[in-house]
């Protein structure tokens, strides 16, 4: 496919998606909002996890801070929604920078564990601060305008995806990839690894926070347990990895496909939907450990053998 055709397809997809609120039912639009928000989260995780190679479990913390930014601004201070978005984003970025400095010294499993603890710690702190509504939570003024939430989420996803696209052709993005591929090798070639990792963490946190802000206003309620839900972080990782981490469209496609599967399962086989979803994820990891994007790249040359090769390569 030539570059022009690919851009044309991407633009067309965005236009079709943007038109959904005008012909889709309420259920479809609501499904769309939650899927778009998950896609933003997966794409945000892609920056730190997919491109920089740091498997962050801290992104649900940024999501929560973004949600509380909107909650506090609107409920406690009577400020407009967008001020809350800015406030939440500032909190998340500041948090990413402050925590990134010590935490990003850790690598691999240790980094994952350290960030995993973050959400718990922050939830515990928030539960005790009156400004954050303690553990009772905050109730936001309702806004019955799903089309607006939908378009806002879509715009955010487009912004996140454009950012990732920019990464693949910028010096900054090359530095991040070099860090992922070999951090020591990157440092001796002049990459300021510490600064780049923190910037990637903050950028990833920025998108998570903005997604959290939209979610909070849409759901109109937030408490520490729902805002700092670690399973949300697991979800974004699964979606990004399912689609193809370190690719421009992989995490977005992963989020759409898995949300659709999950939606169908929970309406068809209500009780055991979780079980089937688990089977889908396990099958994906076994058959295509490098995600959908990798299949697209290699299926033409190896065909169905692609799956057999993966099974053999990973000795499962």
């Amino acid at each position: 496919m030539s570059k022009t055709i690919r851009i044309a397809i991407a633009v067309l997809v965005v236009i079709v998606l943007a038109a959904v609120p005008w012909f889709g039912s309420d259920v479809v639009v609501q499904f769309g909002i939650s899927t778009l928000i998950l896609a933003v989260l997966a794409q945000g995780w892609n920056i730190i996890g997919g491109y920089t190679g740091y498997a962050s479990f801290g992104n649900s913390t940024f999501f929560g801070l973004g949600a509380y930014g909107v909650g506090i601004a609107m409920v406690q201070w009577n400020l407009p929604f967008w001020v809350g978005m800015v406030f939440g984003a500032v909190m998340a970025v500041a948090f990413a920078i402050l925590l990134g400095i010590p935490v990003l010294r850790l690598r691999g499993h240790y980094f994952a564990i350290a960030t995993l603890a973050l959400a718990q710690v922050v939830a515990a702190i928030v539960s005790n601060i009156p400004l954050f509504g303690e553990n009772i939570g905050l109730v936001l003024p309702p806004l019955n305008n799903d089309a607006m939430f939908y378009e806002l989420s879509l715009a955010l996803l487009v912004a996140a995806t454009l950012t990732v696209w920019w990464l693949t052709r910028s010096r900054f993005g090359f530095g991040l990839i070099a860090i992922r591929e070999n951090e020591e090798g990157a440092a001796v070639m002049g990459v300021d690894t510490t600064r780049y990792k923190i910037m990637a963490f903050a950028l990833s946190g920025l998108f998570s926070a903005l997604a959290g802000g939209i979610q909070a206003y849409w759901i109109t309620f937030l408490d520490p347990a729902s805002a700092f839900d670690i399973s949300l972080n697991v979800k974004m990782i699964i979606m990004a990895v399912f689609g193809g981490p370190g690719t421009i469209f992989g995490p977005v496609v992963g989020a759409f496909v898995l949300s659709a599967i999950s939606e169908v399962l929970s309406s068809e086989v209500t009780n055991i939907a979780g079980l089937f979803f688990g089977i889908v994820v396990v099958a994906a990891v076994v058959l295509m450990p490098r995600g959908l994007a990798d299949i697209v790249r290699h299926f033409r040359s190896s065909g169905w053998r692609y799956f057999a090769q993966n099974i053999r390569a990973h000795r499962i």
């Binding site: 090359f174 530095g175 990839i177 070099a178 591929e181 990157a186 070639m189 002049g190 990459v191 370190g246």
Partner: peptide
């Protein structure tokens, strides 16, 4: 210490970008 997932060319380009 190559960057295994990058092309040979881009491995070297990192040096030109950051040196």
């Amino acid at each position: 210490r190559p960057f295994p997932g990058l092309s040979v060319l881009d491995n070297v380009a990192v040096g030109a970008l950051f040196g």
